[in-house]
């Protein structure tokens, strides 16, 4: 093990690529915190997990064709989201469809990475993420996306919540539930692709799902849940980044660890409080 303390970490913090990592990390964390809440209440955790794997062949395939990694990543996540929406009629019975697409996609990811040596080195950064390689232009695009997401949330929050929690009642009230489901999937696919750039395919769960799960464990007030979820995701990313810089550790590892620790402490505390009150 070579965990070492970096003496001049203060100097490091003023480097452009580090500042960009903090900025972009914050934007992705808040997006993941918001969308993660809806992923949980729509019982779509498996779908979000699957989407992250579907991005893999997109990323490795893009390198094969000499295109930017992100373009392939976003394209495949988006196509995956559309396919899952079309194949599965209701949000609850999509698991088989999702799983089948997931296996196929991972297979192609492997094939593409075997076909080019450059692709197989990228494979690691897709699987585990690399927040320090994010371009500042991406940060700008991501922040535009987040702004749109927040505006959409403010406008459509109540109907989306009803559609997510009880499709039957939403239908009876005349809400276009399938349109909401499809739009949600598209937005989810974008957030997943963004999150892959930060923590990678394999660790995505910890950024998208874990903070929201921690928040819901604390409060059942929907708006408070979303805000807490964002705070937990942001804390994980910033604290994780900070520790990774100071001790020269892989950032994805520290981010995921903080996220896990928050969740672990909250679920323990909740058990204790619950036992006391009984």
């Amino acid at each position: 093990m070579n965990i070492k303390y970096i003496n001049n970490w203060i100097n490091l913090l003023s480097q452009d690529f580090i500042i960009n990592a903090f900025l972009c990390g914050a934007i992705v964390a808040i997006s993941a915190g918001i969308i993660g809440y809806f992923v949980i209440i729509r019982k779509a955790t498996f779908i979000s997990h699957a989407l992250s794997h579907i991005g893999l062949p997109g990323a490795t395939g893009a390198i094969l064709l000499g295109l930017p990694v992100s373009s392939g990543l976003f394209l495949f996540c988006g196509l995956g989201a559309i396919t899952i929406t079309i194949l599965g009629k209701k949000i609850t019975d999509t698991d088989i469809a999702t799983g089948s697409i997931l296996a196929l996609a991972t297979g192609f990811g492997l094939l593409f990475s075997n076909m080019s040596s450059k692709a197989s080195t990228t494979m690691t950064s897709i699987l585990f993420g690399n927040i320090f390689t994010i371009y500042s232009i991406q940060t700008i695009l991501f922040s535009c996306f987040l702004a749109c997401l927040i505006i959409l949330l403010i406008i459509f929050f109540r109907p989306l919540l009803l559609c997510s929690l009880n499709e039957d009642i939403a239908n009876a009230r005349g809400l276009p539930t399938r349109l909401y489901a499809a739009s949600f999937m598209i937005i989810l696919s974008i957030v997943v692709a963004m999150s892959i750039e930060v923590v990678g395919t394999l660790l995505l769960f910890a950024l998208v799902i874990t903070p929201a799960a921690s928040a819901i464990a604390i409060t059942a007030n929907p708006i408070k849940s979303i805000i807490l979820s964002c705070i937990f995701a942001l804390t994980s990313v910033w604290l994780g980044l900070f520790i990774s810089i100071i001790f020269s550790l892989p950032p994805s590892f520290t981010i995921v660890t903080i996220s896990f620790i928050i969740w672990f402490i909250i679920s323990r505390l909740k058990k204790l409080v619950f036992q006391d009150s009984n």
Partner: peptide, 16 residues
């Protein structure tokens, strides 16, 4: 929240 959704779940907006 269930009652709030019963009341305003089909209306645009964020407040519950």
């Amino acid at each position: 929240d269930a009652l709030a959704l019963g009341l305003v779940g089909n209306k645009l907006g964020i407040s519950l």
